[in-house]
Amino acid sequence: MSVPGTPLLDFSKWGFLSAPLAELLERLGARIVEVPVDDDHFHGGCMDRGGSLVIVLPERMSALEKDLSARGLLAYRFDVDTSNWPTGATFSDLADLEHAA
Rank of each mutant, 00 (worst) to 15 (best):
T82E: 01
L57R: 12
T6V: 12
D40N: 04
G44A: 09
S52Q: 15
N84E: 14
R77W: 13
C46L: 15
L97W: 09
L68S: 01
G50V: 02
A101F: 08
C46Y: 08
E59G: 00
L28H: 04
S83K: 15
F78L: 06
A30R: 06
T90N: 06
G88Q: 05
M61A: 01
G45E: 12
A75V: 04
D48E: 08
E98V: 14
D79T: 06
R49A: 14
E59D: 06
D67F: 05
D79S: 14
A70D: 05
S18E: 12
V33F: 03
A89M: 14
A30P: 05
E26S: 11
G15P: 00
L97E: 13
D81N: 14
K66G: 10
I32W: 09
D39H: 05
L53A: 03
A95Y: 00
E34G: 07
G50T: 01
R31Y: 10
L9P: 00
A30W: 11
L24G: 09
G72H: 13
K66T: 09
T6M: 12
R31T: 13
V33W: 03
V80Q: 02
R77V: 06
V56Y: 13
S83D: 14
G72Y: 08
R60S: 00
M1W: 07
E65Q: 13
E34F: 08
K66P: 09
D93I: 02
A95T: 02
P20M: 07
S12L: 04
W85P: 15
G88S: 02
L97S: 07
L73P: 06
M61R: 00
L25K: 04
A70W: 13
A75P: 10
L24N: 09
L64Y: 05
K66R: 10
P7C: 00
R60F: 04
I32H: 08
R77H: 11
T6L: 12
A89I: 00
S18K: 15
D79K: 14
D81Q: 11
E98K: 08
P58E: 08
A22K: 11
K66Q: 08
D96N: 10
L25M: 06
V3E: 14
V80F: 00
I55Q: 04
Y76C: 07
F16I: 02
L8R: 01
L57S: 12
D67G: 05
L57H: 07
E59L: 15
H99R: 15
L8V: 08
S83F: 03
S69E: 12
M61Q: 11
A70E: 07
P20G: 08
A30C: 03
E98N: 03
D38S: 14
L68W: 06
F42P: 13
S92V: 12
V37Y: 02
N84G: 10
R60T: 05
T6D: 11
L25D: 05
P7W: 04
M61D: 06
G45D: 09
W85R: 01
D39A: 02
D96P: 03
M47V: 15
A95M: 04
A22I: 03
E26V: 04
H41G: 08
D38V: 13
H99N: 09
M1P: 15
S92N: 06
L73V: 09
I55N: 03
L53M: 02
K13Q: 15
G29M: 00
T90K: 07
V54H: 03
H41W: 08
V56W: 10
P4D: 06
D48N: 00
I32P: 04
L74K: 06
G88P: 00
